[in-house]
Simulated assay, not measured.
Amino acid sequence: MCKISIIMPVYNKEKYIKKAIESILNQTFKDWEMLIIDDGSTDDSLAVCRIFEDPRIHVISTENSGVSHARNIGVDKAQGEYLTFVDGDDYLAADYLENLYIEPYDMIIGGLTKVDKAGKVLASVVPELEKEHRMEKIAPCFYKEQLTTGIYGFVAGKMVKRSIVTQYQIRFDENIRLAEDYDFFLKIYAKIESIYFTKATGYYYIQETENSAIVLDDSKIDFFTQIEIQRKTRQFLEDKKCFHKENEAMYLERMTGYVYTIFLNQKQVRYRDIRTTAKRLKQLVPVVSTKCSGVQKIFMGLYKRNCYMLMYLYLKMKKAMSRHGG
């Protein structure tokens, strides 16, 4: 058994994958295996992956089933003491694994560096905490930091003991297209007692590459699923007795934004559809914030009072105005 299993899903990344693999081969920490799962690429990604003959690299080809399915294959086949994930269009500093492999902790979280396609540094994201902290210390600031930086949701900059993942049968939800990584790690946070934090930022996260979820527009996002993930976050915080007033206010603001966006994205503005959507949402988001501005505040007031007809008329008018450039 090796120390670290690196899991890399690949789909149409031939422009980037060679650099990603080479950055792993150049690691100062050598006791690793890499599981590359080609998710039915239609370009030459698979051929590029097979160029490398290092015995630590294992290339698996599968039919296109999505990034979560590919990562789950990697999790199932991994043999390392720890798991870490690297995407096929990103790359690592030479000391990345060395800085993250910190025994005997169940989980280690570091930072990352955002770069453009030319390698220019755009920003760095680092955890607010440093060294080991128990969940009782982490949970009170968890939600604000996640909403501000996303650091608890990225697959980047994390290492977790494989025994935790296998013991609790934690896997990526293959039905989630966006924030599937955050959903995965939420399951882990609920099962561990502490996390070790490091300020290392040796994961280079390339912004807005092809096939990246970050470039999805609102019309292609399943906001009902995003609502469910936020509800899981709330449950996690409540279990840790940390869903205080500030967290509740941020939670309501986020959920309110999702509710409003769901209505705006209705392809057909029909009264019965608006009413059905509103009733479904009321089961998931019974309370919304009215601390928003302008027309959104008016609309959420209508939602709060179950004024379905007025909601319908508002959306009908907004759709007509958008068609005429208003």
Rank of each mutant, 00 (worst) to 15 (best):
D218N: 13
G202L: 11
E210S: 06
A200T: 08
G202T: 04
T198G: 05
K199V: 03
Y204L: 02
Q226D: 06
E208P: 01
F224L: 15
A200H: 15
D218C: 04
L216T: 12
I227R: 13
S212M: 07
S219N: 14
I221W: 10
I229P: 02
D222C: 08
E208G: 02
S212Y: 12
I206T: 14
F224P: 02
S219L: 09
I221N: 10
T209I: 00
Q230C: 05
T209E: 00
F223N: 11
Q226L: 12
E208F: 01
T209S: 00
S212F: 12
N211R: 15
I221G: 02
T209L: 00
I227D: 12
Y204I: 02
F223P: 03
D217Y: 05
I214L: 09
Y204Q: 02
N211H: 15
I227N: 09
I206L: 08
D217S: 10
F224M: 14
I227L: 12
G202H: 05
G202K: 01
Q226C: 07
K220L: 07
T225F: 00
Q230E: 14
S219C: 05
T225A: 07
D222T: 06
E228T: 06
V215A: 12
Q226V: 03
V215D: 15
G202Y: 01
I229R: 01
S212W: 12
I221T: 12
I221P: 02
S219F: 08
Y204F: 09
L216W: 09
A213Q: 14
V215W: 09
E208M: 07
G202W: 01
A213L: 11
T198N: 11
F224D: 11
Q207G: 01
Q207L: 10
A213I: 13
K199T: 06
T225P: 01
I206D: 08
Q226H: 09
S212V: 06
D218G: 03
I221E: 03
S219A: 11
I214A: 09
Q207I: 03
E228H: 09
G202P: 00
Y204G: 01
E228Y: 07
D218Y: 07
A200W: 13
T225D: 00
T201W: 00
A213K: 14
K220N: 11
T198R: 13
A200K: 15
L216R: 15
V215E: 15
L216C: 07
N211C: 05
Y203D: 08
Y204C: 02
Q207T: 04
Y205D: 00
F223W: 11
Q226R: 14
T209V: 01
I229W: 07
G202E: 10
T225E: 00
A213P: 05
A200P: 03
Y204V: 01
F223Y: 13
E210Q: 14
A200I: 04
I206M: 13
G202C: 08
T225W: 00
K199F: 04
I221A: 10
F224E: 13
Y205I: 01
V215R: 15
E228C: 02
L216I: 04
K220P: 01
I229S: 08
T198S: 12
K199G: 03
